[in-house]
Design a protein around this nucleic acid. Structure first.
Lengths: 206, 206
DNA sequence: ATCTTATTTAATAAGGTTATTAAACCGGCT
DNA sequence: AGCCGGTTTAATAACCTTATTAAATAAGAT
């Protein structure tokens, strides 16, 4: 009665993903992962050699998933509708991966080496730089035109990211502390998205 | 040459605090703590019995520190100056304890049992309920008066908390990824505070 | 049927973790 | 000096962690 005849390598990756997202790197052992899959612990090492390598693969994947969504900022002349689209897309993404942003932040904040590795891998990455650069150019021009108030591009980014990310990061706290049902959480998220959009829109008015 | 003739019990607490804040519960061992103090590992247990008890003491302390600052919301007729004061106070607090909000969030998000314990300890706490209730009444009245746009009190709270907390949570990422000096980080925080204030002020306009 | 190669397992090395224990230490009191 | 209580230590139990190894198993090719 094997767990499934599907690829064990893949199952291990998925279990690792779920557990790392839920309990973090330090809170998850390779034994936990093997147990979740229902296989021998040595298999985790057979396929991924070390816990760190397994983690890295997942980590880089998740960061890319998050960063790629920034491309959804397809500016077509209207700042607010571009921002609205990004908010929409991130809400959709995080709706099905609520722990994602916390996971990435968590590991970056808790581990200096990972920050260094992240700098080498992403900040010094030409494509990523370009995306940020073109975003900041758009913001600068909008400010010049007077369609939005004067604001540092980085701050605008941080404002939106803060609001969206914290919504999902605090979601388990919201749900458990205030004992909300899944249905209530759904409604809450819908309302929250609207609030963020209004807040940003008003907050950017000249 | 004793580490200091000061209270070892206190030194242990302080080292534990520093390490838990920096690396989280799972990432810190009692051996690490003893090592940081320069004492025997058994001493940590002699004074605090278990790692969990030691952690809880620190954790409850930090939550209280954070929640008590909400009292700085001394409303005297002007919403924005009250919010401005809260932002100011939190920036001052977090300036010297930048990892504090992340620490609390981290442990609450990563550990379901802690969320349950937190609900019993705080949400069912009369004093805390009153503070939130009076805040939400003020918001409701301001909305009625038309001095601010319609907004759920919880959302307003979450908006401000998100912006402030994320500023400090992402600080190590900002500093390390963009290789900023301490001086630059200072300026950044000063600018960021202003931005948050403007953003919230504009974001609340009717 | 046997060989081959990839997969999976049990066993284990090497080390780390929390928590307890019994013994040593040390300063003050009688 | 001897005793006492709180403090500190070394030693250790019991267990968990990562990673490796050698042997067992499975499955396809010849």
């Amino acid at each position: 009665m094997k767990p499934q005849t599907t690829d064990l390598e893949q199952s291990i990756l998925e279990a690792a993903e779920r557990l790392f997202l839920e309990k973090g790197f330090a809170g998850t052992s390779t034994t936990d992962i093997a147990h979740a899959v229902g296989c021998n612990q040595a298999l985790v090492h057979y396929y991924y050699r070390t816990k760190e390598r397994l983690f890295r693969g997942i980590f880089i994947n998740k960061i890319n998933l998050l960063l790629d969504y920034l491309d959804k900022f397809e500016y077509n002349g209207c700042m607010m509708s571009a921002i609205g689209r990004v908010i929409d897309f991130y809400f959709a993404l995080l709706r099905s991966n609520p722990r994602l942003p916390f996971f990435v932040m968590n590991e970056l904040v808790l581990n200096k080496e990972r920050r260094e590795w992240m700098r080498e891998t992403f900040v010094e990455n030409e494509k990523r730089r370009r995306v940020y650069y073109s975003f900041s150019e758009i913001v600068r021009k909008e400010v010049e035109k007077g369609t939005i108030r004067p604001i540092e591009p980085l701050f605008l980014l941080l404002d939106v990211v803060s609001l969206v990310v914290m919504t999902f990061t605090t979601l388990p706290i919201y749900a458990d502390l205030l004992e909300k049902s899944e249905q209530e959480v759904d409604t809450y998220l819908e309302e929250r998205k609207k609030e963020i959009f209004i807040f940003v829109m008003k907050g950017l008015q000249p």
